[in-house]
């Protein structure tokens, strides 16, 4: 029996899984790593930063109304027209925006992956039916649905609203996952699993979903900033969070009204928003390179 000797020449080094490989590639990408650190930093700041400030997000300081940043007081980033501390309010806004972005993305992720993988794998008439349903939802005007939803729910209950937005926003995710599944379905390892007698649920859970995780993570990372932006847009329209709550969008809305007299009220929240969005997009790009090395 010479086979042992024949095949024993194995690659040296520790077993390197897909994730270890992806992590190694991601770490090499400076822009993505800086973006990821910035996101973590901003998130930490948003949740623990306000405790360092003596002010609360809705407390009115009658002595310091509309003061610019760096003044002789403890309002580090100034105050708004009502004398509320802009540092604390902006961070409260970041908190809400991040939570909303993650929540809506998570909802769209769960629905989209399950729907897309099922449609793609089953194929045929079922796939046709499922994807035409997606097409119909696509053609409905998104913004009207959201406006109707926001009037149905009690004003200010922004989480319910974004659960609903996530439930509409899964469409693209479903299409991406379906496309991936269709190409996976033709791979020989799926046929191998079929030949081994693995049933449909087993193939979906053990072979299809783990193999679409890469593109799903990439798309999810790029969905978060979209959702944040969408929330800001709704809040800008006055449909999002209600006073005295603040989100980045509502702060920018207020700031835009004072642009000529108190430009910092616009620049502070806008700066945070732009930084967050840029970071998420850079991170998504880096993940694309790390998880899908064929496209490099």
């Amino acid at each position: 029996m010479t086979d042992q000797a024949m095949a024993a020449a194995l690659p040296a080094g520790a077993a390197r899984g897909f994730w270890a490989d992806a992590w190694r590639r991601l770490r090499r990408n400076k822009a993505a790593m800086v973006a990821a650190s910035l996101i973590v930093l901003i998130a930490l700041l948003a949740f623990i930063g306000p405790t360092f400030s003596p002010h609360s997000f809705d407390a009115i300081d009658w002595d310091n109304m509309a003061v610019p940043p760096g003044g002789p007081n403890d309002h580090w980033l100034g105050t708004d027209r009502l004398g509320r501390d802009l540092f604390v309010r902006t961070l409260a806004g970041v908190q809400i925006s991040l939570q909303i972005g993650l929540l809506a993305t998570l909802v769209s992720l769960c629905i989209g992956v399950a729907f897309g993988a099922t449609a793609g794998y089953l194929g045929g008439k079922i796939d046709n039916l499922m994807m035409r349903f997606v097409d119909i939802l696509y053609s409905l005007p998104y913004i009207f649905i959201v406006i109707i939803l926001s009037t149905l729910f009690e004003r200010g209950n922004i989480y319910v609203l974004f659960l609903a937005i996530g439930a509409v926003g899964w469409l693209t995710m479903a299409r991406i996952v379906r496309g991936q599944t269709l190409s996976l379905k033709r791979k020989e390892f799926i046929e191998a699993a079929l030949a081994s007698g693995v049933g449909t649920p087993g193939i979906l859970a053990r072979h299809i979903v783990p193999n679409v995780v890469g593109p799903v993570i990439i798309y999810a990372t790029l969905t978060i900033p979209q959702m944040i932006l969408f929330e800001s847009f709704l809040s800008f329209l006055g449909l999002g969070v209600q006073e005295p709550q603040a989100s980045l969008g509502s702060l920018i809305n207020e700031g835009a009204q004072e642009m000529e007299s108190a430009v910092w009220m616009l620049l502070v929240p806008a700066g945070f928003l732009v930084t967050l969005l840029t970071c998420f997009n850079f991170l998504g790009d880096g993940l694309r390179d790390a998880l899908d090395p064929r496209d490099r």
Binding site: G17, F18, E188, E191, A192, A195, R206, P210
Partner: peptide
């Protein structure tokens, strides 16, 4: 057919493509 698969198995042409890349 599933129980019969225990007795009939297949080896594929493309060795790498026939193995799920995410499994050990």
């Amino acid at each position: 057919v599933r129980p019969l698969r225990r007795d009939m198995q297949i080896v594929f042409q493309d060795p790498l493509a026939s193995l799920d890349p995410r499994m050990t």
